[in-house]
């Protein structure tokens, strides 16, 4: 009997000490979320936020990135020089050109294609989806190489075909012609996006309740009317999502093709803002000028992104 009692007492003592260690453990628990987030925060801090701040600082300095040299503070010089550089002005024009030019490929044509092909059954749809998707997974360098070959001035398939069909009688140097170059880069970027966007719109469309269309048809709405009054409003979250993506990323998508196919030329006719940043930094070794452009456009894109975000919150209709 007393044995039992002793065990109970020692059990209780054990529990009391356990209690104390638990209290101590509790303060550790408070740290747990931060511990789990630490790798991500640390990496993004070191490789995104810290360098972004450095870029803001570099925008007011002059530096050639040569080891052993130090940046010199030059105030607003870089910004002034930017606006005196012809290629920079070109690049702004082209950035706007690419951003607006991509919209038919990322929104308008895909949406119409998705509507036109809506209601296709599963298996066939998957085959098409599989093919539409291929441009999206290919590397920019691969796409650049293939298009460069397709549009080769002397022996490319496009020139051969055009001549065979009698549309042109001489070789066209697509990538060294100021008019063709930027249109081609736009088409390539659009080619990469169009299938993907169609799939996104198709997916969004299949999620719309068929009842809406049936109700509208009963009300006597024509197909065209249905598109305007039901489809587009209900697709508005997807449209705004693709719009945001297009505006924020089109310059990054075009970057690779510009680099591989034209290097921004001829005469800066196909360059965009991100390519100029790269050129100032790594061709001209002018870190300050590149950073000034980066700072400027980070602010511009941030304002656009905030605006689009507000727009999405205000105008996107959701089907419950």
């Amino acid at each position: 009997m007393s044995e039992v009692k002793r065990i109970i007492v020692s059990e209780q003592e054990k529990k009391v000490t356990e209690q104390k260690s638990r209290r101590a453990a509790r303060s550790l628990i408070k740290w747990k979320p931060y511990l789990f987030l630490l790798p991500a925060i640390l990496l993004l801090g070191v490789w995104m936020y810290k360098p972004l701040l450095s870029t803001f600082v570099l925008a007011f300095q002059k530096w050639s990135m040569v080891p052993g040299t130090e940046p010199i503070t030059v105030g607003l010089d870089n910004f002034i020089r930017l606006f005196q550089t012809k290629d920079f002005i070109h690049s702004i024009e082209n950035t706007i050109f690419y951003t607006i030019g991509i919209l038919p490929f990322s929104i308008i044509i895909p949406m119409l294609l998705a509507v036109a092909t809506n209601g296709l059954n599963g298996r066939v749809k998957n085959v098409y989806r599989a093919m539409f998707f291929i441009p999206m997974i290919l590397a920019p360098v691969t796409v650049g190489a293939i298009w460069r070959w397709l549009f080769h001035p002397a022996n490319g398939l496009v020139n051969l075909t055009l001549q065979k069909l009698g549309i042109t009688d001489g070789n066209i140097s697509f990538f060294t012609d100021p008019v063709y170059a930027k249109w081609l880069i736009l088409f390539m970027t659009g080619w990469g996006l169009i299938g993907f966007s169609t799939i996104i719109f198709s997916a969004a469309l299949t999620n719309i309740n068929r009842d809406y269309f049936e109700a509208a048809a009963l009300d006597g709405a024509t197909k065209w009317k249905q598109l305007l009054t039901i489809t587009i409003p209900l697709l508005s979250p997807t449209i705004l999502f693709m719009l945001t993506m297009s505006i924020l990323f089109s310059s990054q998508f075009t970057f690779a093709y510009i680099d591989i196919l034209t290097a921004g030329g001829p005469f800066g006719s196909s360059t965009n803002i991100y390519y100029e940043m790269y050129k100032y930094g790594f061709n001209n070794l002018n870190a300050g000028l590149s950073s000034a452009a980066a700072t400027l456009f980070f602010i511009v894109f941030a304002i656009i992104a905030i605006g689009l975000n507000l727009l999405t919150k205000k105008f996107a209709f959701y089907d419950n």
């Binding site: 529990k15 356990e18 209690q19 638990r22 209290r23 453990a25 509790r26």
Partner: peptide, 11 residues
């Protein structure tokens, strides 16, 4: 009668 206010569920 054990104060378990802050102990882990498993305990």
């Amino acid at each position: 009668d054990q104060d378990i206010t802050y102990s882990e569920p498993k305990d």
